[in-house]
Design a protein around this nucleic acid. Structure first.
Length: 989
DNA sequence: GCCCAGGCCGTTTTT
DNA sequence: CGGCCTGGGC
């Protein structure tokens, strides 16, 4: 797009609130954006606005995100908005990666070695547990690690916050502090920074040398609710020259408290920048209203939360489902069956790409992966295992790290005996000890020992010594010498790829894989190849554009980061996963993801399995409210169909009963008990929400596979019922699930397991899954991202009627400042007049209409629906002990005038929207669990009349299933063998 | 007696 | 996929 006429184009398709946010002239802008409200779109547009309209140079703009995924997405979208590759000049990335760039460029000013490495999780854990052991500190290393991390993450400014009383005994505290000191000392001698240090040191740098960021005009922060103390400081320091900050966030989606994120930072910002322009994005373009309603009813259980409006733009849609299954494996198989049912009945409107299964813990994926595998459904797993964490890749990385930094003891320790060199655990441990006590690096100790300069105290066998010297020390030394020097094969410096290849030959790595992993060495070797190609991509990308570079600042020379290796390693440490050359975009994949990794994304169909106590809220979680928000995030990912499910018996072997998640239990009755009837009206409405074309009815049913069940009836709605069944088989013919058996008959399980696994191996051929080939997908290719904006554009264009209704409802707003209708979040949390701290309170839910003249008293009686809330409201970091509200400042007048609905987003406004649905598509709501009688049978009837079996589809008699229960049993037993037949979406016609 | 290697169990969420 | 236990080899 031509830069000359940017303004209008940028604002195209934005709603009023979004336009206000994008064009706000205030220095600091806080955008409060609920799920699906077009947050990324708005932030992107604001960046474009600031560059194209206001005229900031791209290189003077910092955009910080929390995940690599979000950064990538943001970059892509800003690129589209700006054009001319100008997005590449923007300083855009995760907090950690931006901090690293500054440290690489200017770190020497604060005494940082140029070649610092990054200690990842594994490293710091190893270091800390070694320290604890060596000094015999009586602390749990994991706890110590968390404690240290929290201490760093808290930041330095917020001293007002009292230390939490986790560590009660003084000795314990002292031990922790010793551990902390030793840990830092170790990092320093090995020239490493851990993740938190990147931020801490960058804060130090920018405080001492503000000129580093003297060019920065404006700073934008995505997912602001996830900032922790140190990131808040960093944000301010980035912006220290002009104090222009835009933040986007949603307190309800704060799910990183365990990583020291502080929702309080929102109030902190508003307090420190009182002129902040607040904008709320209150329209949800993503989900059906029933999904939104139910999600809100979950999040509203948190009485301390800042209640905000979230209005569905879409129609009611079909009610979310809460399904109970017998076991985790039954649950997984049910998901498969439901996925098939929905996709099939959508014609080809929906594909696997439209389905996501969101998990509290990555470990829950086992059953689901196996079910999908058995069914031949390709999937990708996001979050959980990462490419770079595979052992073979880690080993190579550790070699590279040792080449890069010989003093990296931890990396060296991990590779001393890989491949096997007859050096055992004890020897390695002892070497580390020796090195640490003598302030030497292990590398030095070994080198000297092998050269005979200094005999190591650690006993090393002659054989091991020879191998270490010949296979490790000398080859690596030689590679290291050749970096940067023009001594490579053709007089060129040894490149990254050649370096890796050199390593592979010297180590005889393929041979090593064969002996170490005889079963799957091929896969692992393939991973190694993949790794090489990633490295080669990296080198290429780095050569073509110098995106990581910071803009030159006059009189402030940067350390040029020439070394490829160094940057590659940093990139690996800071990337959540490898971005591989998008292998198969063509193949639709179901997404399995942790809820955390799903934030910001959306899918038409979302499953949230395992909604039981212990899973969500997780048994080890400290903050139930955060767990609730997590569920809220998961639920609000769904656009048109949302399924929660819960096994009745846990799969931990003893057949213990699960308890439904306390977040779901209170609203249990709002769910349907099984999947909706997917008749024409329901499907049409789904199509409308997704802005897609629903194929004609007859074409859908012509494509129906044989024995297709039109309803969600393959599994009993009440799994208890199945238990009664005399022969132990569930009455709907899915008696093959070993775990589904009540624990009483362990004997019978053995044969079925054998059968299962035989079948499994059979089906594992012919397709590949992420388990085998984790890197065949790109995160950027995730279906979720692009759509809010797309929807919004489409909707504004198409749905003018709804738009008009919307406008009628929303107050006309003054252009630049917060509209009168919108209450300030500061009205919710008010700054006390003295400096001592934040004193918060909350308006009573029953606040009078706007004309009541006296400023309303801030209410603190607990029986008022909303009691007074402390500053740390929703602040999960502070104890509840000091919840006091002191009404000292009168409420801003503005807040009095706000329209009432802003306080009561709960229900009152709903009916109107429903009525507005002129096309009468709201039937879905009526479609409830108890298997609706006649009318909803339409589809089934249709099915009978139009379903023509494809000819030559085998000689076995197959009748359509799902019509009458009585008919099913014998046929259903045959179901299993036909499993792979089920999906034949497109018949050759 | 010491040390290496192979089998078995449990696994929150992420930069 | 790592940490712990037991068995085999130096």
């Amino acid at each position: 797009m031509p830069p000359s006429t940017p303004n209008h184009a940028i604002l195209n398709g934005l709603n009023d609130a979004q336009k206000r946010a994008v064009t706000s002239k205030a220095a600091t802008v806080a955008i409060l954006a609920g799920p699906g409200s077009g947050k990324t779109h708005t932030l992107t547009a604001r960046v474009a606005w600031l560059v194209d309209h206001v005229g900031f140079r791209p290189e003077d703009v910092i955009v910080a995100t929390f995940t690599v995924k979000a950064a990538r997405e943001m970059k892509e979208r800003i690129g589209k908005a700006l054009g001319n590759d100008r997005e590449k000049r923007i300083i855009l990335g995760t907090f950690h990666s931006i901090a690293r760039r500054y440290l690489a460029a200017y770190g020497r000013h604060i005494g940082l070695s140029q070649k610092f490495g990054i200690a990842d999780d594994t490293d710091s854990r190893a270091i800390i547990s070694r320290i604890c052991k060596r000094l015999q500190l009586n602390v749990d290393p994991a706890f110590a690690r968390a404690w240290i991390s929290k201490k760093k993450a808290k930041g330095t400014e917020d001293a007002a916050k009292p230390a939490r009383q986790e560590v009660t005994n003084v000795a314990g505290l002292q031990n922790l502090e010793t551990c902390y000191r030793e840990y830092q000392k170790h990092l320093e001698t090995t020239n490493l920074l851990d993740y938190d240090d990147l931020l801490v040191r960058c804060v130090e740098l920018l405080r001492k040398f503000p000129s580093c960021v003297s060019n920065v005009q404006t700073v934008l922060i995505d997912e602001y609710q996830d900032t922790n103390g140190i990131q808040y400081e960093l944000m301010k320091l980035f912006a220290q020259r002009h104090q222009r900050i835009t933040i986007v966030g949603d307190p309800d989606q704060s799910i990183y408290g365990w990583r020291s994120a502080e929702i309080r930072n929102l109030w902190r910002l508003l307090r420190e920048f009182p002129k902040t322009d607040e904008v709320s994005l209150e329209e949800n373009y993503r989900s059906s209203q029933s999904i939104l309603d139910l999600s809100l009813s979950v999040i509203k259980q948190d009485s301390k939360r800042y209640d905000k409006v979230l209005k569905a733009i879409h129609n009611m849609g079909s009610r979310p489902v809460l399904r109970r299954l017998k076991s985790a494996s039954a649950e997984a198989e049910w998901i498969v069956s439901e996925v098939r049912r929905v996709l099939t009945l959508s014609g080809s409107m929906l594909t696997y790409n439209d389905v996501a299964i969101l998990l509290r813990s990555a470990s829950l994926s086992r059953h689901i992966e196996s079910s999908l595998g058995k069914a031949g459904i390709a999937y990708k797993m996001v979050g959980g295992f990462k490419f770079y964490e595979r052992t073979e890749i880690r080993t190579l990385l550790d070699y590279l790290r040792v080449i890069h930094q010989p003093e990296n003891n931890d990396a060296l320790a991990r590779i001393l005996n890989v491949p096997r060199r007859g050096v055992g655990d004890v020897t390695i441990r002892s070497l580390l000890e020796e090195a640490e006590t003598h302030s030497l690096s292990v590398w030095t100790v070994l080198s000297k020992h092998c050269r005979g300069d200094r005999t190591a105290k650690t006993r090393i066998t002659k054989q091991a010594e020879q191998k270490l010297s010949g296979e490790l020390l000398r080859p690596l030394d030689s590679i290291r010498r050749r970096i940067g020097e023009a001594t490579g094969p053709n007089g060129t410096p040894l490149g990254l790829v050649q370096m890796i290849e050199q390593l592979l030959t010297t180590l005889e790595f393929e041979k090593h894989l064969k002996t170490a992993h005889p079963d799957d060495h091929e896969q692992r070797w393939a991973n190694v190849q993949e790794f090489i190609s990633l490295a080669s991509d990296f080198v290429r990308d780095m050569g073509s554009s110098d995106e990581d570079a910071l803009p030159e600042i006059e009189g402030l020379p940067q350390t040029k980061e020439v070394e490829v290796l160094s940057r590659f390693l940093a990139n690996v440490s800071l990337a959540s996963d490898a971005q591989t050359g998008d292998a198969d975009q063509s193949k639709p994949l179901v997404t399995i993801s942790t809820i955390h990794a799903a934030k910001g994304l959306e899918w038409p169909i979302v499953f949230v399995p395992a909604v039981y106590k212990g899973s969500i809220p997780h048994i080890r979680s400290e903050d139930d409210n955060e767990e609730r928000r997590l569920l809220y995030v998961a639920m609000t990912r769904a656009q048109s169909l949302l399924y929660l499910s819960c096994p009745v018996f846990s799969s931990n072997g003893n057949g213990e009963r699960t308890v439904l998640s306390p977040f779901v239990e209170p609203v249990e009755r709002a769910f349907m008990k099984k999947g909706p009837c997917l008749d024409r009206p329901v499907m049409s409405e789904i199509a409308r929400i997704l802005q897609r074309q629903l194929p004609p009815e007859d074409s859908i049913f012509q494509g129906l596979p044989a024995m297709f069940s039109l309803e969600d009836n393959l599994f009993p709605v009440d799994p208890e019922e199945a238990k009664q069944d005399a022969n132990g088989r569930s009455n709907r013919g899915h008696g093959y699930h070993p775990d589904a058996q009540p624990s009483k008959r362990p004997r019978l399980q053995a044969p079925s397991i054998v059968q299962d696994s035989a079948e499994e191996t059979q089906w594992w051929k012919g397709y590949s899954t992420t388990m085998e080939q984790s890197s065949t997908f790109t995160v950027a290719a995730l279906p979720g991202f692009v759509s809010v904006a797309a929807h919004q554009a489409a909707i504004t264009a198409a749905n003018t009627k709804a738009d008009a209704a919307q406008k009628a409802q929303v107050v006309k707003r003054p252009t630049s400042k917060r509209p009168t209708g919108q209450k300030s979040i500061m009205g919710f949390v008010k700054l006390d007049s003295d400096q001592s701290g934040l004193v918060a309170t909350r308006l009573p839910a029953t606040v009078q209409p706007s004309n009541s003249s006296p400023a309303p008293r801030l209410v603190q009686e607990p029986q008022a629906a909303s009691a007074a809330i402390a500053p740390d409201l929703a602040g999960h970091r502070l104890g509840a002990g000091k919840l006091i509200a002191r009404p000292s400042a009168p409420i801003e007048e503005k807040t009095l005038k706000r329209k009432q609905y802003t306080c009561f987003s709960s229900s009152p406004t709903r009916p109107a929207a429903a009525e507005d649905d002129s096309s009468g598509k709201n039937t879905a709501e009526a479609d409830n669990n108890e298997t609706p009688p006649e009318p909803t049978r339409a589809a089934a009837c249709l099915h009978v009349t139009t379903c023509a079996l494809p000819k030559g589809h085998g000689g076995v008699l197959r009748r359509p299933g799902g019509l009458s229960r009585e008919n099913i049993t014998p046929i259903e037993k045959l179901r299993k063998p036909f499993k792979p037949l089920t999906i034949t979406l497109k018949r050759p016609s």
